[in-house]
C-alpha cells in the first residue's frame, strides 16, 4: 500500500516540479507547483465534446489508457516489500499493460480521423515499438542477474556489490532515464511545448480530446512519470532502514528525477524527427551490451 500512495502523491507533484525547474533554469519565476494539477482538475470537471465522425473507441480509449496506467501502479514494489499485486512474471504483465494503454491511445488518434492525429499515432507507435526491446532487455538483464522474474524478486535480490554490477547499474540508470523520457513524450524525442502539429508526437494524438478525457490522459501521463521514477528509486532504496526513512528516500528520488527531467529538458535540443528511431535503437543496443555483460557475469548460457 505504501508505494501506491507515495507514487500517487509524488506523481501529482511531478509535472509541477518539471515546469518549475524549467522556468527557474530559463530565469523565469514560473507557475506554482500545483498549477498543472489545478489544470487537470479543471479539465476533469468539464464535460466531453465528441465529433460526429468518431466511434465508441474514441470515447472509451482515454479511460482505458488511464486505467491501464493506474493499474500499473499496483505492480510497483517498494524496495524489498512487494507491490500490491506481485506474482511470478508480473514484469511482463506490467510491460504489456502499458502496451495495451498505448495501443488504445493510438487507436484514439486514428479514430479521430484527422491526418495530423494519424501521423502522431504512427510516430508514437514506432517509438514505443523501438523503446520496448530496450526496456525488456534491460529488465531481462536484471532478472538474469537476480534470478527472479518478478519486480519483487529483482529488487529484493539486486545488490550493487561487485564492480561489474556497478557498471550495469550505471548503464541501466542511463537507459531507464532515456526510456522514461521517450515513453513520456519528452525531449529529445518529443517536445510537449511545441505548438506545430507537424512536429508534435504525443500531444497531437490528443488534439480532438477535450474536457474529462483530456484530463484523464494528462493525469495518466503524470502517473506514468511517477512509475518510472519509482522504478529507478527502487534500485537505490537501502534495505535496513525504518519505513519512514525509506519512504522519504523514495519520494526524494522521484522528486530528484523530476528535477533531472526538467534540467534535461532545459538544456537539451530536440532531435530531428528522422534521427529519433536511431536514437531509440541506440538504447536497445546499450541494453544489449548490458545483457551480454550480465550473461558473462552470471555464466548462465549453455
Amino acid at each position: 500500500m505504501i508505494p501506491f500512495i507515495l507514487i500517487l502523491l509524488t506523481s501529482l507533484l511531478f509535472p509541477g516540479i518539471v515546469v518549475k525547474t524549467k522556468a527557474l533554469a530559463s530565469g523565469r519565476k514560473g507557475p506554482g507547483l500545483w498549477q498543472p494539477m489545478h489544470d487537470i482538475f479543471r479539465l476533469l470537471r468539464k464535460g466531453n465534446v465528441y465529433s460526429h465522425t468518431t466511434s465508441i473507441i474514441f470515447q472509451i480509449a482515454p479511460v482505458i489508457y488511464f486505467s491501464t496506467i493506474f493499474f500499473g501502479l499496483f505492480f510497483i514494489p517498494f524496495g524489498t516489500s512487494g507491490g500490491l499485486i506481485s506474482f511470478q512474471g508480473d514484469l511482463i504483465v506490467f510491460i504489456y499493460l502499458f502496451g495495451l494503454g498505448k495501443f488504445f491511445l493510438i487507436l484514439n488518434g486514428l479514430d479521430a480521423g484527422s491526418g495530423f492525429e494519424g501521423m502522431g499515432a504512427n510516430r508514437e507507435a514506432l517509438y514505443s515499438m523501438l523503446a520496448e526491446p530496450a526496456f525488456i532487455i534491460l529488465f531481462g538483464t536484471f532478472s538474469l542477474m537476480a534470478g527472479y522474474d518478478s519486480f519483487y524478486g529483482i529488487y529484493s535480490h539486486w545488490h550493487v556489490t561487485t564492480g561489474s554490477s556497478l557498471v550495469l547499474s550505471v548503464l541501466a540508470a542511463y537507459v531507464l532515464v532515456q526510456i522514461a523520457m521517450i515513453e513520456n513524450s519528452r525531449l529529445p524525442v518529443d517536445d510537449p511545448k511545441t505548438h506545430l502539429e507537424l512536429t508534435m508526437i504525443h500531444e497531437v494524438i490528443l488534439l480532438d480530446n477535450s474536457g474529462f478525457d483530456l484530463g484523464l490522459t494528462q493525469l495518466a501521463n503524470a502517473f506514468k512519470f511517477g512509475i518510472y521514477g519509482a522504478l529507478i528509486a527502487n534500485f537505490i532504496l537501502p534495505e535496513h532502514q525504518t519505513i519512514v526513512i525509506r519512504a522519504l528516500i523514495f519520494v526524494l528520488v522521484i522528486l530528484v528525477f523530476a528535477i533531472v527531467v526538467g534540467l534535461l529538458e532545459s538544456f537539451r535540443a530536440r532531435f530531428k524527427i528522422e534521427k529519433n528511431p536511431q536514437f531509440i535503437l541506440t538504447l536497445s543496443s546499450i541494453a544489449t551490451i548490458a545483457f551480454l555483460v550480465a550473461l558473462i557475469i552470471t555464466n548462465k548460457l549453455l
Binding site: 536511431q278 535503437l281 541506440t282 543496443s285 551480454l292
Partner: peptide, 22 residues
C-alpha cells in the same frame, strides 16, 4: 546506409561475437 540499419547490424555483430566467443 541509414544509421538505423548500421546500429542494428552492429548490435547484431555484438551478439554474434558474444555467441562465438562463448
Amino acid at each position: 546506409v541509414p544509421g538505423f540499419v548500421s546500429l542494428t547490424v552492429v548490435t547484431f555483430i555484438f551478439f554474434m561475437s558474444f555467441l562465438v566467443s562463448y
